[in-house]
Each structure stands twice: as structure tokens, then as C-alpha cells.
Computed example of a mutant assay.
Amino acid sequence: MQSDNTSNQPSQSQLRYVTRSSMICDLKLEQISQDRWQEVTLTYKPLLLAWMKNKNVPASAKDEILQNCWVAVYESIGKFERDPEKGTFRGWLRTICRNKIADYFRSLPKDMGVPQEVLNAVANPEQKDADEIEREEQALREAEVRALEIIRSKTNEQTWEMFWMTTVENVPTEEVAQKFSVTKAGVRMAKQRVLKRLRELGFEI
């Protein structure tokens, strides 16, 4: 695995989803930067689309529901509290998506004849078959890749390579320091700088 190959990403076992308070705090800002908001929406879009697919939302309605989801997040994030007993950010986001999907189906004319199995799927979100579980896992992997791509695009190339070599390729810090003619402390700082950005987007290695 080479650090200059943009297609190489940490494995699923290396990169896992978390919800960091820094991301929640940023979203709660009255004037969150457009750049920060875009990072979050781009990262979590695959999950929202996967949940819609699991509930048989037609392609023609996905953009509208997606927009409604983000409007709801923006308007209600101030009420979200990061508490394991009350649920995670991802669970909260899933609930918003489910509600917007339900709103969409309720808005359809009765003569369109929405299949009962579709209505049952929306009403029973915890009932998932193997395909639904796989789609959600795939969407989470795509979200992970997006997070890495966003961070790399805004990170100095040397900083990224030092992070990649020490964290993904497990190259000893001393060896990386010699390669880039920096101190071991400099390598550790570069690594932590990228890890901090990953945590801000809800992931960690």
C-alpha cells in the first residue's frame, strides 16, 4: 500500500464511526461556516440515501427528501444531546430521515396506491433484512471514504503522508521522521492533526 494512492483507504476495522462532541458543537453554532456544513452533508449523504433505498423511496423523490432532512437537522440540532442512553447522532439522523420518508408517502394521493409492504417498512424501522443491513454498511464505508477524501484535499501533502505511513502502513515514527527530515515530535503532530479532523467528521482510527 502506497501513501500516494488516493484509492487506498484504511480498512473497516481501522476506521470506525464515532460521534464526537466537536462535530455536534459545530452544527449547533448559529452561524456554522458553509465549508463545515458542506463537509458534514457530503460525509453523511450516503447513509441518508441508503436509508431511503431501504424504504423503497423512488429516485424522483430522493433529492427532495434529502433536502428536507438537512433542513430538519439544521433546525433541530440544538435539541440534540450526545447521551448514550438517549441514542447516537447517527440514530438521531436516521429518525429524521425516517420521519421525512413517512411525510413523503403520506403526501401522495391515495389513488397512487402505495404498496402496504412499503408503508410497513416505514412504520417498522428496526426490521431489516440482510440486503438492508448490507446497504447500510456499504453506505457507512462510503461515508468513511468521503471523510478521508475531504480531509486529504485540505491537508498539506507531507502532513498527509506522515499520517498515512504511521497510522495506516504502521511505519515506525523514527523511520518516517528520517524520510521527511523532521523530528519524531513533528511526525506525531502531523498524525494528530489529521486524526483530529477525522474525529471532527465523526470517525476515528
Rank of each mutant, 00 (worst) to 15 (best):
P172I: 09
I133N: 05
E75R: 15
N124Q: 12
I32Q: 10
Q138W: 01
R82Y: 03
L93F: 10
K154D: 09
S3V: 07
Q178G: 07
I77T: 08
E142R: 10
K196R: 15
F105M: 09
N124Y: 12
L140M: 14
E161V: 01
T159I: 15
A121S: 13
S33I: 09
E200K: 06
V168Q: 11
N124E: 11
R193L: 10
Y104M: 06
N68P: 04
R94D: 06
F80R: 00
K110C: 10
P10Q: 04
R106K: 11
K154L: 07
Q127N: 12
C69L: 02
Q14C: 04
L195P: 00
M112N: 13
Q138F: 01
V194S: 12
W37R: 11
A185R: 11
Y104P: 00
N8K: 13
V171M: 12
D4N: 15
V187Q: 08
A139E: 03
Y17C: 03
E161C: 05
E200S: 11
E126F: 13
E200A: 12
S76H: 13
T88C: 02
D26M: 14
V168E: 08
N124K: 14
N54P: 02
V182M: 14
S107H: 01
L198Q: 07
V18S: 01
L148C: 13
V182Y: 02
V168A: 11
K53P: 07
K53Q: 09
V171H: 02
R135G: 04
W160L: 07
D83Y: 04
S21C: 00
M52K: 01
C97N: 00
I65N: 06
E157T: 09
R20A: 14
P10D: 05
P109A: 02
K191L: 07
Q2M: 14
V194D: 07
V145A: 15
D129R: 07
M162G: 13
A130N: 12
D103T: 05
W70F: 14
L49M: 13
Q2F: 14
Q38G: 11
Y17F: 08
N99Y: 06
C25F: 08
Q12Y: 07
T173F: 09
R197F: 03
K128R: 14
K62W: 00
E200G: 10
N56G: 00
P172Y: 10
Q31Y: 11
F80S: 01
T173S: 13
K100G: 08
S22C: 06
S60P: 01
D83C: 09
R36G: 04
E149A: 15
S13A: 13
